[in-house]
Design a protein around this nucleic acid. Structure first.
Length: 230
DNA sequence: AAGCTGATCAACCGCATGCTG
DNA sequence: CCAGCATGCGGTTGATCAGCT
């Protein structure tokens, strides 16, 4: 039986107070990150280590960039999502100052809806309208998307705005089997920060992430920079 | 002004994985 | 090799707020 990550009694939950924030900041400024399990006790916080880590990473870190996402950030998220799927930490890693949680929230609350309003399935970046080469489109939950819904028709050319253009690009990246496509020249310079053990999460993630991810794995490639679509 | 509804986002939860003894 | 621990991740929840009726 798995032990809970923290004792449930005497542990605060929910929103953090300013005082708690300050205690966490002070402690990490003094002692640095790490050893999250023992941190709360050492810092005098009545929180579990997980909660402290999340609060620090998603909110308190000094390099966090807050506020609205810029247009180019949106574009990049779309492109990376097309490539990587819901691997939010990898996507966030390409957006300086953004966290996986923030990217995930932004995707779910903004981008997802906008893609759907453009007639693009945000799960696979394909047009939601049935086309000869796209016969079965399902959501992540497995339910069929209502193809008959009167959503805006997918525009295959002349994107009317930056966002739409980016969505199209993402779409084309994913679904172009044509190796000569100019889009394949795209090099996002996906320098996936190599942790101490680069394969740590990957196998699990690949099991989790549902198909269609372009295999851009570093694997045996000793290069630190991932040369996508060169 | 009050109630309702949908959107947003901070935080929690459970699971997977690597590490260590 | 194995079990337990620590950490990181993605999915989900719930509190709060804004807009609408």
């Amino acid at each position: 039986m798995r032990k809970p990550c923290c004792e449930k009694e005497g542990i605060n939950k929910g929103a953090w107070s300013k005082q708690e924030d300050q205690m966490l900041i002070d402690y990490i400024n003094t002692h640095g990150e790490g050893c999250w399990r023992s941190l709360p006790k050492a810092a005098g916080l009545h929180r579990c280590g997980k909660s402290c880590r999340l609060r620090w990473i998603n909110y308190l870190r000094p390099d966090i960039k807050r506020g609205n996402f810029a247009q180019d950030e949106e574009d990049l998220i779309i492109k990376l999502h097309a490539l990587l799927g819901n691997r939010w930490s990898l996507i966030a890693g390409r957006l300086p100052g953004r966290t996986d949680n923030e990217v995930k929230n932004y995707w779910n609350s903004h981008i997802r809806k906008r893609l759907m309003s453009l007639g693009i399935d945000p799960n696979n970046h394909r047009p939601r309208h049935r086309l000869p080469q796209f016969t079965e489109i399902t959501t992540s939950s497995g339910s069929m998307i209502d193809d008959t819904s009167p959503s805006k028709p997918f525009k295959s050319s002349s994107p009317t705005n930056h966002f739409e253009g980016a969505a199209l690009v993402a779409q084309q990246i994913v679904h172009s089997d044509d190796q000569t496509s100019p889009l394949l020249e795209l090099n996002l310079d996906l320098t996936i920060a190599m942790p101490s053990s680069p394969t740590r999460k990957r196998t699990a993630m690949e099991k989790k992430t549902k198909s269609h991810i372009i295999s851009a794995e570093v694997g045996a490639d000793p290069l630190p920079t991932l040369p996508l679509f060169k």
